[in-house]
């Protein structure tokens, strides 16, 4: 699990090993900040990453559309 974006006390997290590479999150993102990364995970699929100058609005649509709980938003601890 790695944090790929943080803002307003919340973080966008990608669990790379759970991702199956369906790219539904990239398709549904309303502000188009996600893109296929250049990394392969242990399943051998391309996982999503955030664009270099992308600003995520933390709308949770990707979290709701991910069938594998691989991308989600959590409040920061503390």
């Amino acid at each position: 699990m790695s944090v790929i974006f943080s803002d307003k006390g919340k973080s966008l997290i990608v669990a790379r090993d759970r991702c199956k590479g369906c790219e539904l999150c990239i398709e549904v993102c309303p502000v188009d900040v996600l893109e296929p990364s250049d990394q392969l995970n242990s399943r051998g699929v391309i996982t999503p990453a955030i664009k270099r100058e992308g600003k995520c609005t933390l709308c949770t649509l990707c979290e709701n559309m991910c069938p594998d709980l691989a991308i989600y938003i959590m409040p920061d601890a503390g």
Partner: peptide, 18 residues
Amino acid sequence: KYYNPFCPGCGYGIIANT
């Protein structure tokens, strides 16, 4: 551990999430 038996992109996971 978490185990998801569905194919990549299967919509059933989305319903289960909700």
